[in-house]
């Protein structure tokens, strides 16, 4: 796996996830801690509370994860996809298939924190986003940043991920 960094391709280890599909889309994947005036958010349960999620099946005390699309995508779509991936808390399984093509990585690791902050902000309930003191103090610390890829199925111009109900 190669990463486009500073105009050059450099090798990078990628963990391929999920099964049925014909192309792997790469994502940056990291656990995060949110610092905000409402307190520290460092587990999935408190993060779900913060973003007003009604999903309780995956509620746990484990660290939450954020997904940042690492391939070329218009910025609004990239944020939407990252948001959907993050709030669906996918339970990813290592893919037995390894020889599928992988979309080139265009988002550098140095840009991951800024994009992660944006994606996590977009997952929050509207009342919080309309509070300027909350926004100014809102910060995200990432740890264990790594590259993963999720298999998608090509359908015409679209790429879909049926298990997570995602579409690009």
């Amino acid at each position: 796996m190669w990463e486009l960094a500073e105009g050059r391709l450099v090798p990078r280890e990628v963990v391929h996830f999920s099964g049925s599909g014909d192309i792997f889309l790469p994502f940056w994947y990291a656990s995060f801690i949110i610092n905000s005036p409402d307190g520290l958010v460092d587990d999935t349960m408190s993060y779900m509370k913060m973003c007003g999620s009604v999903k309780t099946a995956v509620a746990s005390t484990e660290a939450p994860f954020v997904f940042i699309p690492a391939f070329l995508l218009p910025p609004p779509q990239s944020i939407r996809l990252g948001r959907n991936m993050t709030v669906r808390f996918p339970s990813l399984q290592r893919s037995p298939v390894r020889d599928l093509p992988v979309e080139p990585i265009t988002v550098a690791e140095v840009d991951v924190p800024a994009l992660a902050e944006l994606i996590l902000l977009s997952t929050l309930v509207e009342e919080r986003r309309n509070n300027p003191s909350f926004l100014v103090s809102f910060s995200v610390d990432l740890s264990g940043v790594r590259l993963v890829s999720v298999s998608f199925k090509r359908e015409g111009n679209r790429m879909i991920q049926p298990e997570m109900n995602l579409e690009v």
């Binding site: 910025p75 840009d111 800024a114 944006l118 902000l121 300027p132 926004l135």
Partner: peptide, 8 residues
């Protein structure tokens, strides 16, 4: 590049 962030 891409200007990313938020404004209120």
């Amino acid at each position: 590049g891409i200007a990313t962030g938020w404004q209120w």
